[in-house]
Simulated assay, not measured.
Amino acid sequence: MFDELEKEGYDLNDIFTDEEIKKYKAEDQLRAGKTQFVDHRNGSSTLYLSSAYTKTIVALGAGAVSMISGLIGGAVAGGVGTFLSNIAAANIDKSKGIYINLKSVKNAAGNYVMKATKWGYQ
């Protein structure tokens, strides 16, 4: 996640303290697999995000779409940005990881994209 944020031009220190950066990097090494994308093979999927991602979504809102797109590895619907902004505005607990349910939908151009439908805490 940190690499993707920096690639997008964000300064990690604008979002995290030095202590948080060290903590989240250490947690990522301990909890491999906590941030993962699960394809349910029925047109739906679930994206599980660690608390580091949750804090990033709160800090960036719709700006986190490119980071989420990088994790999913496919096309993300425009509504995901609004969805992430709504999560950010929900005054959520940044110390917890979240999940986002997604479904495959056809956009106006006839391409299949992932659209967020629901979220909750892990």
Rank of each mutant, 00 (worst) to 15 (best):
1 M>L: 14
6 E>T: 14
9 G>Q: 13
11 D>P: 01
12 L>E: 06
15 I>Q: 03
16 F>P: 01
18 D>I: 12
22 K>I: 09
23 K>Y: 13
25 K>Q: 15
25 K>L: 13
25 K>S: 13
26 A>M: 12
26 A>C: 05
27 E>A: 10
27 E>I: 03
27 E>T: 07
28 D>R: 13
29 Q>N: 06
31 R>G: 13
31 R>A: 12
31 R>K: 13
33 G>V: 07
36 Q>G: 00
41 R>G: 03
41 R>S: 13
42 N>T: 09
42 N>P: 03
42 N>A: 00
44 S>V: 13
44 S>L: 00
46 T>Q: 06
46 T>H: 00
46 T>F: 01
47 L>T: 05
49 L>P: 05
49 L>Y: 08
49 L>G: 05
50 S>L: 11
51 S>W: 00
52 A>M: 10
52 A>V: 08
53 Y>P: 00
54 T>I: 04
57 I>L: 10
58 V>C: 03
58 V>K: 05
58 V>G: 02
61 G>K: 14
61 G>R: 13
63 G>D: 11
63 G>T: 07
64 A>S: 15
66 S>R: 15
68 I>G: 09
68 I>T: 05
72 I>P: 04
72 I>N: 09
73 G>V: 05
74 G>W: 12
75 A>N: 14
76 V>K: 08
76 V>L: 14
77 A>Q: 04
78 G>I: 07
78 G>W: 01
79 G>M: 05
83 F>I: 01
88 A>M: 10
89 A>N: 15
89 A>Y: 14
91 N>K: 15
93 D>I: 05
96 K>Q: 14
96 K>N: 12
98 I>V: 12
98 I>P: 05
98 I>A: 00
99 Y>L: 07
99 Y>F: 15
101 N>I: 04
101 N>R: 11
102 L>N: 06
103 K>C: 07
105 V>R: 01
106 K>E: 12
107 N>C: 00
109 A>E: 14
112 Y>A: 03
113 V>S: 03
114 M>N: 14
117 T>N: 05
117 T>V: 10
117 T>A: 07
119 W>D: 10
119 W>S: 09
122 Q>T: 08
